[in-house]
Structures are given as structure tokens and as C-alpha cells.
């Protein structure tokens, strides 16, 4: 109880509401869940209608790159979590290192994604291309969903990188400190959501057998 009162007093003193800030972030994240949820719904319906076509098209995707990107993204989630824990303990250096590592891994993820799409493009699998539209309906839908969903996810990775880059600057300039880290926490939440969406994209696209 006294802890709670202390917290309230502190909030009153600095005019800040960290719980409210996190709550706002979560509400935003839930709209993101519904955005991707709609796409997962479309995926579920068409996979139900074209199970064989989805399997044939899914076998074409590179499981190794998908697995590698899963490991990269999970690890980047760890480094973000550690960077927050580090700033909470007042360890600015560790926080900076971990945030930088996160940015490096996010970039590695995008590079892998680039080469993966590049390979697809070189095989003529481009949305709307002659090669694509001549395939059976189920495969067109699979590749369409693949490009839209992993593309939208990659866009989130890029946005996440921009946000985390700002956070890195804030930590370096002591705008984010041991006593005021809610910005970094919320950016971390966004990054974990990006990871969370990939956790479902990975088995649904790369592990269809």
C-alpha cells in the first residue's frame, strides 16, 4: 500500500503516468492484432478451401531462411528486453549495446527478407506477373497472402527500427534514464509485437508440408 502511495506521489510530482502510457501503447497494439487478425482470417479461409494448392506453394518457400529469420527476431526480442532491464538497473552502456544489437539484427532480418523475395522475383513469382497468374487459384492466393503479410510485417520491422533508433539516441542523451524509461518500454512492446506476429507467420507460410 505504501509503495502504491509513493508511486502516486512520485507521479504527481513529475506529472507523468507510466501505467497510462503503457495502457495507450497496448490499446494501439491491439488494433495491430486486429489488423493482422483480419489477414490471418483470410489465410485460414483460403487454406481451408485450397489445402493442396497451399501445400504445393508452401513447399516452394525457403524454410532455412524462414528459420534463420525466426531465430534473429527472437534474439532481437531478447536484446530489447535486456536493454530495458539494463536501463532499469542504471546500466546505460549495456542498454546502448543491446539496443544497437537489436538494430543490427532487425537489419539482418530485412537483408534476408530481401534475398528471399529477390529469389522469388527471379523465378517470376511477382504479384500480377504472367508467371503468377497462370498458376492455379489456390497458389495465387497463397503467394498473394505471402507477399502482403510478410510485406506488412517487414514494414513493421522498418518502423520498429526507426523507433528503436530514436530510443537509442534518447538513451545516449540521457532522455531515457533509470527513473524514466517508459518510452523505451513502449518501443520494446512494439518490437515484441513484431516478433509475436512473426511467430505465427513462420509456421503458416514456411512450414506448410
Amino acid at each position: 500500500m505504501s509503495d502504491h502511495q509513493d508511486a502516486v506521489l512520485e507521479v504527481n510530482h513529475v506529472h507523468r503516468d507510466d501505467v497510462g502510457a503503457r495502457m495507450g501503447m497496448w490499446l494501439f497494439l491491439l488494433t495491430e492484432v486486429l489488423l493482422f487478425g483480419g489477414l490471418f482470417l483470410v489465410y485460414a479461409v483460403y487454406r481451408y478451401q485450397y489445402p493442396d494448392q497451399f501445400r504445393i506453394a508452401g513447399m516452394e518457400l525457403n524454410t532455412s531462411i524462414g528459420t534463420l529469420n525466426t531465430i534473429i527476431l527472437l534474439t532481437s526480442s531478447l536484446t530489447v528486453a535486456i536493454s530495458i532491464a539494463a536501463i532499469q538497473k542504471g546500466n546505460k552502456l549495456l542498454s546502448v549495446i543491446m539496443l544497437s544489437l537489436t538494430l543490427v539484427m532487425a537489419f539482418m532480418f530485412l537483408v534476408n527478407k530481401f534475398f528471399e523475395w529477390e529469389t522469388k522475383f527471379s523465378h517470376g513469382i511477382i504479384p500480377g506477373s504472367k508467371e503468377m497468374t497462370s498458376k492455379p487459384n489456390g497458389q495465387i492466393l497463397f503467394y498473394g497472402l505471402y507477399f502482403v503479410m510478410t510485406g506488412l510485417h517487414a514494414l513493421h520491422v522498418i518502423i520498429g527500427m526507426i523507433i528503436l533508433a530514436f530510443m537509442l539516441v534518447f538513451v545516449i542523451r540521457n532522455k531515457i534514464t533509470e527513473g524514466n524509461y517508459v518510452k523505451l518500454e513502449n518501443s520494446g512492446l512494439y518490437w515484441h509485437l513484431v516478433d509475436l506476429i512473426w511467430i505465427f507467420l513462420f509456421p503458416l507460410f514456411y512450414l506448410v508440408q
Binding site: A81, G188, L189, H192, D195, I199
Partner: peptide, 10 residues
């Protein structure tokens, strides 16, 4: 996996 991420990481 998402349970772990939501509960601990988030």
C-alpha cells in the same frame, strides 16, 4: 511461444 513472449518479454 506467444504466451512466453507476452507474459515475460512484454
Amino acid at each position: 511461444k506467444s504466451g512466453l513472449v507476452i507474459n515475460i518479454f512484454m
